[in-house]
């Protein structure tokens, strides 16, 4: 059955090739899908391997269902892992691959075969049971790998960039499959990815990791609306950063005094706003700006606006047609301005 997963101050150091982890703490609720997101080499795969038991943390605790598993070898953790490569056993048929975990637990051959067929149906690979892995395409192999992990009904399902080797269409299809399987099976799932879009689509919560340190752990929309730091905001595509000085619920900035949605402690601050939130209208927090570039993206047009002392990016619907050199009035709604730490 799926279980709650807790990492408490997990460290991993002196690990040869493995990137380090520094005091990683997070909890995954039973049945939740959490993405470990970050650039390559940030330690997200190290964290997953620590959870699987393939790496031993140098400090800290890993608990599954409330009990520490640090001393438990991977084969007794019931944490099935799917890797970047399908890694099917080349000397076994597809059905034998899927039934492997059951057979290792002593399930009888007929029973294992029956449940393997069932698992193959769930990943839409029925009819392939008798094939050899080398006869399958990369995407099919990864489906079989997924079935092989799911058939054991693991307490934790660990996915290490399982689709990064597939092409874009297939990747989308696989994401939908994972979402469906996860909803149906209710597995506690940890999904490692470097792809911010993938994390947003799949995950209930995202743990963003830079340099082995957890930067932010929250629901996907929070990374757009309420990023913790400038680095987090930038990783999620934010480009508008405004330096200023806070006083009495507003900020003194090169754009003038901007009213804030929430009070900020007095002193220096950095504001950010999503390009989609910039309005072309007068009123509170408005200012004059000049269009210095425009790029048409089909559903949106991205403009760069030059104002007194700073440049801002605005994403506007395509029916608003501005030309480079136009003078406009732009407004930054107070409720969309977010104060970075």
């Amino acid at each position: 059955m799926s279980a709650r997963l807790e990492l408490e101050n997990v460290c991993h150091r002196y690990g040869g090739d493995e990137p380090a982890l520094e005091n990683l703490s997070l909890a995954v609720e039973p049945g939740e899908l959490v993405a470990l997101l970050g650039p390559s080499g940030c330690g997200k795969t190290t964290a997953l391997k620590v959870v699987a038991g393939l790496l031993r943390p140098t400090a800290g605790d890993v608990r599954v269902g409330g009990l520490s598993v640090v001393g438990t070898p991977p084969e007794r953790r019931e944490a099935a892992m799917v890797f970047q490569k399908p890694l099917l056993f080349p000397h076994m048929s597809v059905a034998q691959n899927v039934g492997f975990g059951l057979r290792m637990r002593g399930t009888r051959k007929e029973e294992a075969g029956r449940r393997a067929e069932e698992a193959l149906r769930r990943v839409q690979m029925d009819g392939f049971a008798g094939r050899s892995p080398e006869e399958l395409s990369g995407g099919q192999q990864q489906r079989v790998a997924l079935a092989r992990a799911l058939v054991t009904e693991p307490r934790l399902l660990l996915l290490d960039e399982p689709f990064s080797a597939l092409d874009a269409n297939l990747r989308e299809e696989m994401r939908e499959l994972v979402l469906r399987l996860q909803r149906e099976g209710g597995h506690t799932t940890v999904f490692v990815t470097h792809d911010q879009e993938e994390a947003v689509i799949l995950a209930g919560r995202i743990a963003l990791i830079f340099d082995g340190r957890l930067q932010m752990y929250d629901r996907p929309e929070a990374f757009y609306d309420r990023p913790a730091t400038r680095e987090v905001a930038r990783f999620f595509g934010a480009t508008n950063f405004i330096e200023g000085l806070a006083k009495n619920g507003s900020a003194h900035t090169p754009l003038g005094d901007l009213k804030l949605g929430r009070p900020a402690p007095p002193g220096a601050l950095t504001l950010t706003i999503r390009p989609e939130a910039v309005r072309l209208e007068g009123g509170e927090n408005s200012f004059r700006a000049r269009v210095i570039s425009a790029s048409y993206l089909g559903t949106q047009v991205h403009y760069e606006l030059q104002t007194a002392g700073t440049a801002l990016r605005a994403a506007l619907p395509p029916h608003v047609r501005l030309a480079v050199g136009d003078e406009v009035t732009a407004r930054l709604p107070a409720e969309s301005l977010w104060v970075l730490k």
Binding site: E75, R76, A80, F83, T152
Partner: peptide
């Protein structure tokens, strides 16, 4: 690598 897979599958 295959051995790691087998480990997480309970072997």
């Amino acid at each position: 690598e295959l051995e790691d897979v087998a480990r997480t599958l309970g072997a």
